[in-house]
Design a protein around this nucleic acid. Structure first.
Length: 113
DNA sequence: AGTATGACGTCTC
DNA sequence: AGAGACGCCATAC
């Protein structure tokens, strides 16, 4: 609320909040959807600031490998994994099993897939 | 005001 | 095919 920086962060929030329950996506997918292929870093960084907005399921966002890279940024290092498991997603060693199966891409919104 | 770094991903050697 | 460097934009010091 300090600034209306809806340049990037808010954009990411909009997409992340649209992630269906029981599904996950990657930073690159969001970045790609926003039009910035190389901005995956910013997507992850935006999540860091996600605490500025409520309802941001950052636990549904993982890297392209399906690894919970940002789990350490949660209230607890295992918090992220637990949240995913609560949605039916199995995680092992901070890595999502059947990642491609749970993988969700914002582009599907336009593809109406 | 400038430098360094970050929850990533792709290109290049 | 494996390893290293770069790019993206913003925050922090």
């Amino acid at each position: 609320m300090r600034k209306n920086k809806e340049n990037y962060f808010d954009l990411v929030y909009q997409v992340v909040m649209l992630i269906p329950k029981g599904r996950v996506t990657s930073y690159g997918a969001i970045a790609n959807y926003l039009g910035i292929k190389s901005g995956a870093r910013m997507v992850g960084y935006a999540m860091n600031a996600s605490h500025t907005m409520p309802g941001i399921p950052a636990h549904r966002v993982v890297n392209r490998e399906g690894v919970l890279t940002g789990k350490h940024h949660f209230s607890s290092p295992s918090r992220m994994q637990e949240l995913l498991e609560l949605e039916g997603i199995r995680v092992e060693k901070d890595k999502i099993l059947n990642f491609e199966e749970y993988f969700w891409d914002p582009i599907e919104l336009e593809q109406e897939g």
